[in-house]
Design a protein around this nucleic acid. Structure first.
Lengths: 146, 146
DNA sequence: TGTCTACCTGCAAATGATTTGCAATAAGGG
DNA sequence: CCCTTATTGCAAATCATTTGCAGGTAGACA
């Protein structure tokens, strides 16, 4: 699919979701989605900001809004900095990452243990709407070589 | 086992591990372990500090040292605040938590998926020493009632 | 196309967790 | 008991993220 098609789709979806919440389609919001679409790995707010020409606070505000609208997903690798990935239209973004402890290279892990672990845990402890967060850490091939 | 026995054991272990690194056994370090031993759930640096009478910076420095010495384990629930738990002598502290999204109540989860998932992931991606972090989130029984 | 208004942005300052510089203090081997 | 070196308290610095505010703009409507 050509990039501009992606963009168009993206924009249409953005427009629709923003309308529902009486929010506006602004330059920064479109640009942030563009940046995220270009990257295959989750980006920090700062990394996104470096590719843009708007205020860092605007990036944070936009990311929060886009997250609420389920257009981006926030990941936490435990280094004190949130990372964001673009979500597809029918994608809940549930997947995990394998992160290099040395260079922070990120590999996406499609696999996840069966959901029944989650429901069993919910049942055993009387919790409702249980979700989980799972990330893997290791040393990537390149860092092993060095 | 009586509490003072625990304390004695604790102190002996602390002493031994500190000696190895040419570090000193100080009041704050002993007190932090005491506080952690009294609590069944992971505590934040601030929570530990509230029960003590030393500087917050000292609490952070001590926790970092104790973590390096594998006497406490750091957990990250994704709320931007680290939490710490005491580790037993032959305990690598590998377990997970179920955290209430409302009130932050924490339940410890003993169970963990088979370690072969970890090694399979390592193999597939060429990573070495792969570990993982996994936490569950949900609404606890009490918060469901309210 | 101009108006109006609520939403947005930039900028600067505030927050909250955690770290660090430094001078004063204490642990513990000799 | 002394001396060297680790450790502490205090204040200031960092870092990621948020927020207050005044000026700017998207977009519904006339």
């Amino acid at each position: 699919m050509a990039a501009h098609t992606h963009t168009r789709q993206n924009l249409a979806e953005l427009t629709a979701r923003l309308r529902q919440r009486d929010r506006r389609i602004t330059g920064p919001r479109q640009l942030i989605l563009d940046v995220l679409r270009r990257e295959e790995h989750p980006l920090t707010a700062k990394e996104i900001h470096e590719q843009l020409d708007c205020d860092l606070a605007t990036v944070y505000r936009s990311l929060r809004l886009l997250e609420e609208m389920a257009m981006v997903k926030r990941f936490d690798f435990g280094d004190g900095t949130a990372r964001f990935e673009l979500l597809g239209q029918n994608d809940d973004g549930h997947h995990h990452h394998l992160v290099c402890r040395e260079c922070s290279t990120v590999v996406e892990i499609g696999e996840c243990f069966r959901g029944n672990l989650e429901s069993r845990i919910a049942q055993e402890h009387g919790f409702a709407s249980v979700s989980h967060r799972l990330e893997f850490f290791g040393i990537c091939p390149e860092c092993q070589a060095n």
